[in-house]
Every structure is written in structure tokens, then in C-alpha cells.
Design a protein around this nucleic acid. Sequence first.
DNA 1: GATTTTTTGATTTACGTACATCAAATTTGG
DNA 2: CCAAATTTGATGTACGTAAATCAAAAAATC
Lengths: 341, 341
Amino acid sequence: MRPTVHDIAAAAGVSLATVDRVLNQRPGVRHVTREKVETAIRELGYIRDVAAANLAKGRTYPLVFILPASDNSFMHGLNAEIRQAILRSSAERTDIRTIEVSAFDPAALVSVLEGLSQEKRCGIAMVATDAPEVRDVVDRLVRAGFSIVTLVSDLTGSLRHHYAGIDNIAAGRTAARLLGRFLGARKGEIAVLAGSMLVRDHRERLEGFTSVIAEEFPDLAILPVLEGRDDPEVAHMLVADALSRNAGIVGVYSLGAGNRGLVRALKEKAVDRTLTVIAHELTVHTRAALIDHTIDAILNQDAGHEVRSAIRVLKAKADGLAVIEAQERIRLDIFLKDNLP
Amino acid sequence: MRPTVHDIAAAAGVSLATVDRVLNQRPGVRHVTREKVETAIRELGYIRDVAAANLAKGRTYPLVFILPASDNSFMHGLNAEIRQAILRSSAERTDIRTIEVSAFDPAALVSVLEGLSQEKRCGIAMVATDAPEVRDVVDRLVRAGFSIVTLVSDLTGSLRHHYAGIDNIAAGRTAARLLGRFLGARKGEIAVLAGSMLVRDHRERLEGFTSVIAEEFPDLAILPVLEGRDDPEVAHMLVADALSRNAGIVGVYSLGAGNRGLVRALKEKAVDRTLTVIAHELTVHTRAALIDHTIDAILNQDAGHEVRSAIRVLKAKADGLAVIEAQERIRLDIFLKDNLP
DNA sequence: GATTTTTTGATTTACGTACATCAAATTTGG
DNA sequence: CCAAATTTGATGTACGTAAATCAAAAAATC
């Protein structure tokens, strides 16, 4: 049987009340006594029964999700997963709130975070916009005792506790290798469709992609990046235009959202030529395109996993517990038409 | 706040004791009274607080893992993950035991299961050997109230509650498409290395593989399957022999274990020719081979996820709770050298 | 050494559920 | 209508922890 507070009290030769004071860092314990108790805790390998503690405290975990107000399938999916999590919140003792901020807008994000810093402590999961002022508020919040995980897009160099998202450089590299290998000996040009080069995850994907193409597939040339702003209409226009004007395009890498427009452009302009296409994010549109061979492979991050992982990590941080690292690694899913879920 | 037993009692106009009798299906409640309580439960949307209930009961979840005594990296990994789970068992209230049975031996598996049927109820996670007599015991155990999930290898047609493993047909199909696309226009023969055609997952992978090759890559011919019995030495011998005798081999699909032998054979016999190789299971050997380009892609199932998923499902079944389906889907991981974990 | 302050102990209640006991009420059978 | 059987209520204890109160002991201050 695992030891209880009673065992600790007995082992340390103190009363239950003192053990409680130590465990919950309440004042009024001499240094030496505190040490005795801490030694007993270590030696007996005591671990607080979180379930019992939560029951006694009537505890809930206040969590806030901060999301960009972007109108694309991926963000809708992420929202849906958060709603699912809210449905489970009574069983999981969470109390989840979501806040939308305008996309690509560091100032808006900063003001929301500053608002939170005035409130009582909570766990924060945020899709980070990569800017120094954001980093600063995040660091301040962490120092003030908030737990923060970045979601989908990271904020490297900050004190955030965890990143629940894929390795975007690896994703770009993987896309490049798949494209290169699928094209085999073919030479030609590659069109790259991104959302915006202001977003870190898109920059990283592109970085990974270009470096592998350059290193290992010298016969392929990458055309200037098309920035579709994750908008299907813009994406359609840009891709259709590129395909019309450049007959040497043999492959397309779409590393952002707005793939509905991409697919439409491909069906209009690329019926006659055999293009190899890799896109990000599994949605109804990309899924259909994968099945009808318009797209050859889809790289995906599982929004459900990301949300559940963020919640698990934030709860664990709030309790000062360790997480199972391997469980929280968000994997890059590669879908061909044969392994669709 | 979620409703408690007290709320149910008040709403149904009965005492706490009666609610308790209904909830824990104890005798001594008239039919009409039971209905009243059940109505109140439904109307208030009462859900038992599992944490509090487990605390009160001092409950632990007795779980048994039944594994084949196979000496390969994958099974070692699976074992390691179970040991990790055992380390967490006090926090998760599990009481995990593992039983080894000789591999590919339905009779041995049946006798272990029959032994368990004599003991008190528990949750069972088993690597199934696909045989009618196994199906029969499993069905009997399920009817007797045991929860059963199959692990890695399924037992379709049985009453098992859940399968924690990948879709092996999809895995085979995916391997075929990757190999076909990587080979591009090249024609030639494909060597397939399996463990044993007596194992369901290997049969299914082969089935998926051959069907996609036949449908979509008619220029590729599949050679008779090499059965390496998941043994590195046998695998080495078979693959080396095949490569020596057949100059037309352009690709290899290794759908079982024993890849250490495969890699050795490839390095000896295939230095001069450009083979495309797809293998299953990420181990130290396949990982190194992926990095040095001996292998082109690795298909993997995450043993850690499988074990954790099996445990979550068995616990949920024991409590009569629903599982998050999407969370329990075991995905086929595709690793190129760029997205290794 | 007396007084104040700090530290510690003892005890209680609570969280939501399980489970047991005994008494009281109700139903059933004759 | 009475006795027996069944059903229901009332109550208490337990699980492991949190949190509060008040008394007692120890340490620090003068």
C-alpha cells in the first residue's frame, strides 16, 4: 500500500497537522521540523493522492484557451475539440474558458494575457504569435505562478512550460523528402503555398522543406513562396495563376491552410499534367482530394491530441506532477489514401 | 456543480441508502422505487464521481497482460512499456500482472485464459493468437464479466471489447503505396520478409500490400514470401540468399520483426544496387538503418500508446464508462529520416 | 525567570461515495 | 387483521486529504 499522511506523521515523529503544514506550504513550521517531514516524505516515497486531495479541496482546474480568430478548417477543428473537452470537464474537474484574439496580432494577444494576469491563477493554453512582447508577458505570467503551454505554434525562448504541437521543421523536411522521392528522377519546379511568412510554424516548415530539397534533391527548384493568408480564395487565385504561367511545375507543397482553394485550382489547371502534391492538415477537403489522387500525401497534426495533451500537462503542472513525456509528444501524422482514419 | 447522491435522493424522494442500493445494484428495492431513482439519475444527469468512489472502495483495477514469449525488439519494447505502467500503478490504482505464453501457440494461450477464468474478475489485455479455440475462451470470459482488449494482434469475430493496435491491412497498403511511389517508373521484383504466415497481423499486412501492388503498380512483381520467424539469423539468411539469386529485386518490404538480420543482409548484398526498403517497427536497428539510408521508411506502432490505451480502456470498462474513441485509435506511424522522434 | 512569540499537537469537519447495521415502515400472505 | 417478509430510512464509519480551531508546548525576548 502506498504511504499516507499518517505514515509520514508517524515516521517523522510529528503530528498530522504539521505534515499538512509542510505539504501545503503553510507557515508556522520550524526549519528543522520541516526537514524532518520532508525526509520522511522522501524516504517513504510518499505521493499525494491527487484524487483524494481534489475531493477534499473541491478543486477544479481553471483553464483558459487563447485562440486566433481564424476562419479555417483547422481552427474550427481545434475549437470543436475544446468543446469536447468542455463536455468532459465535470469528470475531469476542469473549468475551461476560451478567448479569441485577432490572428497575427501580438498586441491583441498581449492585452489578453495582461488581463489574465490580473485574475486568479489559471492554466493557459495559447496559440502563440511569435513576438518579443508576447514572450515578455508569458515570462511574467510564468513567474507569477501561471502554467502556460503553447499550442500548435510555439514560443521558443520563453519560459512556457510545454509546447503541444508538432515539430514544424521536421514536418517541412518530411514533406520535402516525400515530394522528392515521389517525383523520383523528374526535374522541375516546386510551388510552395503558405499562409503567411509572419507565422513561426509556416516559416519553420518552409525552412525544413527548402533545406532538404537543397541538400538532397538538387534537380528540384523551389519557386517564390505564395502567401495565401490561409484563405481559400486567395490560395485558389495564387495557385491557378502559378500553374498557368509556369509549365515546369512538377510539385506543390501547401504548408498552410486554405486548401479548399488549392484543390479547386489543381482540378482546374492540372488535369493534364501529373503533379505531385503534399498538403498540411486533414480536413474534409484535403481528405477528398487525397482519395481522388489530387493530393498525394497529407501531413497532419491531431488537434484532439493537442488539446487533450495541453489539458493533461496543465493539470499536472498545477499539481506539481510529472508528465509522461512520450505520451505528450505530438506526432506528425502522414496520411496516404490507404491509412486514413 | 454536478449532482451528487444527495441530490438524487432528494429528487427521487427517497433516502440515501435507497439511492445507494440502486446505484450499486444491491437487493431490497421495489421495482417502482428503483424506477423513481433511475429517473432522477437520468434527469439530473448524475454521473458517479469515480475518484470518490474508488477512494471509498479502496479500489484497485486488477489487470493482466498476456504476452508471447518472443525474443524481438518489439516485444521487449512492449514489455518495457508495461513495466513503466507498473511503476505508475499506485497513482493509477492499477494492479498489473504479466503472463508470458509461448508464441504462436493457441493451446498455451487457452490454458492461461482458462486459469484466469477461475480467479476473480480482472481486465485482460492480450496479444491474441488467431484460433477458434481462443475465440471461444475469450467469449466465455467476456460473458463471465471479464473485460478483454486485444493488443497488437486482434481476434476479430470474438466478443473482445476493444482492439488496441493498428489496422494491419492499412499498414500493408500504405507500405505498398510508399514503395510503389518511391520506385517511380522502375520495374522489377519485390521481396517480402514476414515472420510467419500463421500470425494474423502478418497475413493482413501482406494482404494489404499485395492488393495495392496488384491494383496500382502492375510493373512490380511480388516474390514468394520469405518467412523469417521474426528471427534475425533466419531473416539474414533468407534475404541474403534472395538478393544473391535474384538481380531483379528493386524493393523489399519487411513486415515482421528480426530486422537486424535484414539490415545486415542489405549492407552485404545491396551496396551496389539502389534498393527501396520499407520495414516495420522502429528499433535501434531500423532507426540506424533509416538514418544511413539502408531503409527508406519505417512503419511503426507505438507500444507505449498501445499499453496506455489498453489500460485506459480496461479501466473504463470496469467502471462502465465510455472511452474517447479518437484517443484510443492506435495510429500507424510513418517515419522517414526527417521525422524520427 | 517571566512574558511574549512561535511552533506543534489534537481534534473536528468536509469532500462524494461505499457499505454495514438496525430500526421503522410498508407490503404481502394467510 | 395479524404475523411474517420485504422494503425503506436513519445513521455511522471509512477512504486520503484539506483546512480550520484551540490548546499546549517550546523557543525567543526582555
